[in-house]
Design a binder for these strands. Structure first.
Lengths: 262, 262
DNA sequence: AGGAACTCAGTACGACGTACGGAAAAGGGA
DNA sequence: TCCCTTTTCCGTACGTCGTACTGAGTTCCT
């Protein structure tokens, strides 16, 4: 199917062409020894990843270009390609590194506390690295930090005593929930800081909408909720609220499947 | 409260420069009359939006460029700018149009059925238009179809009898949940069809990982779940499963807040 | 010492969004 | 009828992007 560089023999040390994944795996799991033959490297892989995260944090993920990262490091753009196969792969490494900061819960706690801590860690990870949300990742990077966190979440959910099948579902559910809520919350705050457009300006520019097209008859419920002030009051703890409902539901499931002690 | 376009002299036909939002609102809510003076337009706004959706469906959202959409319509690239202020705005119009297909539940049903139908409609919308997931939208496009669907969801949740505050939270929760799950499911299937890389090839390229770095000792829970076959068995009904847990949790909340009949 | 292996980076190509300006088409007023 | 204003269509061009290619310079091994 693809395409270029079919010729490269697999023995080449970092042939990040053909089976793209293979060398990503290597980069994620054991970054190659500095080098044997050539000149000393001016940078380390870690520095490149950190520069990428710095650029994403400072200017937004849209500005995460090879040229920008290289400039941030004081090297030529093309030099980065000795450390990293390409932009997407750099991004994947950044993602795995973001997951590295996730703390794991105390294993002696009840399962619900552990799962909640996992969710809160995920939430603060998205707050800390909003560009994770824009992550146009086809799939999760199979990195060590990602997998360690996932494994521990599965372990915590397993404490419920649910069968494996439900464990897989619940764990996925928790991660998805946090991501979904994070997306709808983070974009608001992070966009305004990255583009010049503040939230106020945005709503001002949209203000003609309220006078012209919005009608209380067409949107009675939203109007009522809005005027009650409930939107403001409900803002801020979406994560906790959703998590509480969700885990309540899981507890019900546990009881239903194993009504041992009641 | 109303009034209108204070600075921009209303005479300007489509000044989509300065307060970007204003004309987006106009485009979303009442597409301007064909024209008065100049030559006949070769296209309609609807055609442009549909061409955008066609390109996104056929080649993936990464290929959604002004040039591609224009080529698909047989016009020059710059011609599109008479219909649409720019690429991002075209995308916003596409999003609102995708929401247009969402059916609304029968209002005589119990609230839970109505909310479930909303969730299922959202889910099939994401399946139908996977590019909605990549939608790097800072904010929801304030379009009529989006708002109609939201309003109806709020209305359905209001049937629970919960206070406004919780209604807002629950509605947001349902949308976020579906989005979160959709993201983790859709990317798998839609990526493989848009890039040449099938899922099998992907895993093959990653296969060196399993032999080399994956260790049962480091990931015991994932190993156990995997070997039990639970991952396969649990796949496919993540939406329904999560929705069930979530709404169970909401029912608990209803009882807790209003323990009228028990 | 000589060559192999490697790093760094300049140049270049094709894609992108879109600003600008010109040609041509249509309607309204004379 | 003619002309002028308005509007459409779009070719060209600029700045951005990822990255292929190439070559110059650096280090180690034999």
């Amino acid at each position: 199917m693809n395409d270029e560089r079919p010729t490269v023999p697999d023995t080449d040390p970092l042939t990040w062409g053909t089976p793209e994944g293979r060398h990503m795996i290597r980069l994620l799991w054991d970054p190659p020894a500095p080098a044997g033959r050539g000149p000393k490297q001016k940078l380390t892989l870690d520095q490149v990843i950190e520069a990428g995260m710095a650029v994403a944090a400072a200017d937004g993920v849209d500005k995460l270009s090879m040229r920008n990262v290289a400039a941030h490091l004081g090297v030529g753009a093309m030099s980065l390609y000795t450390y990293v196969p390409g932009r997407d792969e750099l991004f994947e490494l950044m993602v795995d590194r973001a997951w590295a900061a996730r703390r794991l819960p105390d294993r002696s706690l009840p399962w619900r506390d552990q799962v909640e801590l996992h969710a809160r860690e995920a939430w603060s990870m998205y707050q800390l690295y909003p560009w994770l949300i824009r992550a146009n990742l086809w799939r999760m990077p199979l990195g060590p930090h990602v997998l360690d966190a996932q494994e521990d979440l599965y372990r915590a959910v397993l404490l419920t005593g649910l069968p494996y099948e439900e464990v897989a579902r619940v764990a996925g559910l928790v991660e998805s929930h946090v991501f979904g809520v994070a997306r709808s919350l983070i974009t608001d705050t992070s966009m305004s800081s990255n583009t010049g457009v503040t939230a106020d300006e945005y709503w001002d520019s949209r203000s003609s909408f309220w006078g012209t097209y919005y009608s209380r008859e067409r949107f009675p419920t939203m109007t009522a909720i809005w005027e009650s002030g409930a939107f403001e009051r409900s803002a801020g703890d979406e994560i906790e609220f959703g998590l509480a409902r969700l885990l309540d539901g899981v507890e019900l499931l546990i009881e239903k499947l194993a009504p041992s002690n009641s």
